[in-house]
Design a protein around this nucleic acid. Structure first.
Lengths: 238, 238
DNA sequence: GGTGTGAATATTGTATACCTAATTAGTATA
DNA sequence: TATACTAATTAGGTATACAATATTCACACC
């Protein structure tokens, strides 16, 4: 798949994406082609392309009202996280309806795989020393499994487009939501049961609830956190 | 808004988009930078950027399995149109839930505007000589009105991204679905009534039904149409 | 006659030079 | 001291040159 995320992890796009998602490039940081080109050791051309993709992902947004396009790292907001999660819930929700057209056996197998991802997530969450990377990955695996089973290429593409945003919010704020993930456990459990049950409405409702609630949990944390962190004004430009 | 569609209608992106959406560049046509650059009278650089955007829009897709990126105009398929419309329905549907948080007066005003767009659409559909352009525009206006009222920037961005696809399918196949649009009339009427009523569930259900049914209508037409038209193998390369 | 190898060609990816516009700093004048 | 005008620097948009690789066509050999 050439489009989702980035095929080559060494590409300027992938590198910049990583820097932004992990917060090494903080909100508000100006993204100037020549500077990034020097920093990444390539010419302006591939950096330009990467910046355009990041702009499309809304991880880079226009800074200033000039005629020329000046970009900066996008700020974070509770309103945006709610909307992004609502969109992801709506998309994964409609996609999930398709699992009900699977046979009983396939649904059961899918439910098993989902349950095992969730179990891994719980183990990671209860580990003596919390490793956010594995927590992150196991949680992601749950939703990927569902998307692989249910979503066609087009909805997958839209979800893949949302993923960087989701990743950024989760990466930057998960430490403030955890380490109590009982809400997530319950919602994942409901999804697994609904997949087993095979009711279209139940499956969609469970999936949407998980995303909506997840967005609400993050939004709540964001609203109470320092606004300087959200725009990056207080951070150094890395 | 710098991202949606294209600010400048003379930009290579906008021009190529138009050529593809209107079918002047048929499915399967190879999109080679140098050729298009000559044709559009610009250098390869802006064409490259345009092609990357089109690739993201899925109007251009990789052709051949080479290492280098070779693009061609994307084919059309019943499966894809169903998925695209399902995604649009899911997104506009969740967005539409927000109209219920508007005041009674605002909802009434919105319903009026929607009804007037629908009336214009009906007039256009019943005109002596069918003008597909105005039919197209009035139908679009209905959904834009709803999206403007309900969707935040992020969901708007996703819907804007879907629009070129929707436009292409409607433009190429609407002549085969019309001129009887009673299904559409009924669904738009249901949306207007639901907006007036103010029930979250009703509004979302009505919006989704409109998109799902629209996708189904198009998919049915596509399935019965000549497959050569879908991949463009029979068309000249323009 | 089919197939494999090689050269020629076509096409993408990258770097760089040039141009234009915008912003900023500096200076002079009111 | 504030403001307006001008010069200089910065930065993005476009064109083009160059490099690398895939594709195609031709020809020879099996």
């Amino acid at each position: 798949m050439p489009i989702p995320s980035a095929a080559d992890p060494d590409s300027p796009y992938a590198r910049l994406l990583h820097l932004i998602v992990r917060g090494r490039l903080s909100p508000g940081t100006p993204l100037t082609e020549a500077v990034l080109a020097r920093r990444l050791g390539v010419s302006r051309t591939p950096v330009r392309e990467a910046l355009h993709r990041l702009e499309h992902d809304r991880l880079a947004i226009p800074a200033g009202g000039g005629d020329r396009l000046r970009l900066m790292v996008a700020p974070l907001s509770a309103a945006e996280v709610s909307e992004v999660y609502a969109a992801a819930g709506a998309l994964e929700g409609v996609a999930a309806r398709n699992v009900t057209s699977l046979g009983q056996k396939d649904r059961e197998a899918l439910a098993k795989r989902l349950a095992s991802h969730d179990a891994a997530f719980r183990r990671a969450a209860r580990a003596a020393t919390l490793d956010w990377d594995v927590l992150f990955d196991t949680h992601d695996a749950f939703h990927r499994e569902l998307q692989d089973a249910a979503a066609g290429v087009r909805i997958r593409a839209l979800l893949d487009e949302l993923r960087p945003q989701v990743d950024r919010y989760e990466w930057l704020f998960a430490p403030l939501t955890g380490p109590d993930f009982t809400g997530t456990y319950a919602e994942h459990g409901a999804i697994v049961r609904a997949v087993r049950g095979g009711s279209v409405a139940d499956v969609e409702r469970a999936v949407r609830a998980n995303w909506f609630n997840g967005g609400a949990r993050l939004a709540a944390v964001i609203r109470t956190s320092d606004t300087l962190l959200l725009t990056g004004s207080a951070w150094s430009a890395a």
